[in-house]
Design a binder for these strands. Structure first.
Length: 479
DNA sequence: TAGCTCGTTGGACAA
DNA sequence: TTTGTCCAACGAGCT
């Protein structure tokens, strides 16, 4: 191996931005210091191929935006397919790189892959550097007074709210450290990241903003126009009063430290809603804290006593299909499921309602819902998705009490009093359905056999009967 | 240490 | 129409 380093590799994963990027900045600085080239790489490895349909498609969009951003800086994103360790090793051999940098991820699959990659690269004499940057606080740095992990949100919030958060760092200005020759790269289109999107990707595209500039624009728009009414508006599914940053944060198109800094500035200005927004960012942190310390959060009941609960696990149950298709006959549930199918995201209150309906009224295992979300959500996040489902089901940490069963009828009356959300997403039985409601029928596969002219379905179970049945089962405590 | 307080997001019912 | 209370019990986290 050459003793004269010619390149530093930076491996992009879920951090598809150029600013507020501690890992990339470190790699950049290292390359400059050594007079080496900096080569950005993204890898379609088995872990990436295992993504759900919508997250995979959205990843492709984001990689396209990153390519353009890098090109504007005089750099190129090198795309390679294969297992990460082999790709990095080959690329290092081609370019003379002695160093590989990346930013850490925390889900069980990524941790096991990354530790193996690090060990193997080190054994080959390559320096592998992993950096913090996906989170405000590394999960192991937040401890209770007795040195344990947090299991309840509020004490976690109290522990981190006053902590210093490193200020966002900009990538140095100036010329990109280019190699004499850029290595060969796959064509992004050949990766086929959108191939598993059964529903029309062009329909979802209408509702999706992509890339770091779009993320920053949205953050600032939110801080200027929406944060003041965030406390009330964030509960109203028909009002665009949420930050809408979830997909950007999930793929790292924006750094969470940037969002934190904007939230803190709003707090200092005394803006209403600022603290609530900061708390939401910390919910994301808390989910990662839980997933890191108890990785089974993503795979099974966090409270093992729930293993004996009589969940229905029949994925082919017609009631489950109706839930997925937004045809339960419960307007709030159906509107939310259709919103997800058409836009790739769902309002937070909708997420709680559909999860409560599936796990409580339908007594269906939360993992069935979690997997459907994983295939449909463009903002899918491994930690938040798992925590949210287990919270709703009652099997998770800090979970909702068993008797807290959402009534989707009263919830709709409370948070959508004018029926705007239902009008937005439900076409059946309406004289003049909205464009968005009709677009659901364009998006769904023909095999579902749905049309806006159909009658709106009758519920298979009423909110009252479902609630009573769920409470009976929970009360029995035979599990 | 042992006791105390509290727990993101609700609903039903009585007054 | 609005407001208050109860719906379990337990474990987390602090003092």
């Amino acid at each position: 191996m050459s003793s004269d380093p010619k390149a530093v590799l930076f491996w992009f994963r879920r951090d598809l931005r150029l600013s507020d990027h501690p890992g990339l900045s470190a790699a950049f600085a290292s390359a400059l210091a050594q007079g080496a080239a900096l080569i950005p790489v993204a890898i379609l490895d088995p872990e990436t191929e295992a993504l759900g349909a919508a997250p995979a498609w959205r990843l492709g969009q984001s990689l396209g935006a990153l390519q353009a951003d890098l090109e504007a800086r005089g750099a190129k994103l090198i795309l390679r397919r294969g297992d990460a360790q082999t790709v990095l090793q080959d690329l290092a051999a081609e370019t003379g790189a002695r160093e590989v940098h990346w930013q850490r991820l925390y889900d069980p699959a990524a941790i096991s892959r990354d530790s193996a990659v690090k060990a193997q690269l080190s054994a080959q004499g390559l320096a592998a550097h992993s950096h913090a940057g996906h989170l405000l606080h590394e999960p192991w740095t937040v401890e209770t007074k007795t040195g344990g992990m947090y299991r309840v949100y509020t004490p976690y919030w109290n522990a981190v709210k006053g902590r210093d958060v490193a200020a966002p760092v900009a990538l140095p200005e100036g010329a990109w450290p280019e190699p004499a020759h850029w290595p060969e790269s796959d064509d992004l289109a050949q990766w086929g990241l959108g191939a598993r999107m059964q529903r029309g990707a062009d329909i979802v595209s209408r509702h999706v903003r992509v890339g770091q500039q779009a993320a920053l624009d949205r953050l600032h728009d939110f801080a200027e126009r929406w944060i003041g009414d965030y406390v009330a508006n964030r509960d109203r599914p028909a009002v665009p009063g949420t930050s809408e940053l979830s997909a950007h944060l999930s793929l790292g198109e924006i750094g969470v430290r940037t969002a934190w800094a904007v939230g803190m500035a709003a707090l200092e200005q005394g803006r209403n809603g600022a603290e609530t927004f900061l708390k939401e960012l910390v919910w994301r942190e808390f989910a990662y804290h839980l997933m890191y310390h108890t990785p089974h959060l993503t795979s099974g009941n966090w409270r093992p006593e729930w293993d004996a609960f009589p969940w229905s696990t029949d994925e082919d149950d017609p009631a489950v299909l109706a839930w997925k298709q937004g045809r339960t006959g419960i307007p709030f549930v159906d509107a939310a499921m259709r919103q997800m199918y058409v836009t790739g995201t769902m309002h937070n209150r909708g997420r709680m309602i559909v999860a409560s309906w599936l796990t409580k009224h339908m007594m269906t295992h939360w993992k069935i819902g979690m997997r459907w979300f994983e295939s449909c959500l463009v903002d899918w996040d491994p930690a938040s998705n798992a925590m949210g489902w287990q919270w709703s089901a009652g099997s998770g940490p800090d979970a909702t009490p068993y008797f807290r069963v959402f009534n989707p009828v009263t919830q709709l009356a409370k948070f959508d009093p004018n029926g705007a959300y239902a009008d937005q997403w439900i076409a059946e039985g309406k004289g003049n359905p909205s464009e968005t409601a009709l677009s659901f029928f364009e998006a769904v596969p023909r095999s579902w056999g749905l049309s806006p002219d159909m009658a709106y379905p009758r519920p298979r179970i009423t909110p009252e009967a479902g609630r009573a049945r769920a409470l009976e089962a929970y009360k029995a405590r035979s599990f």
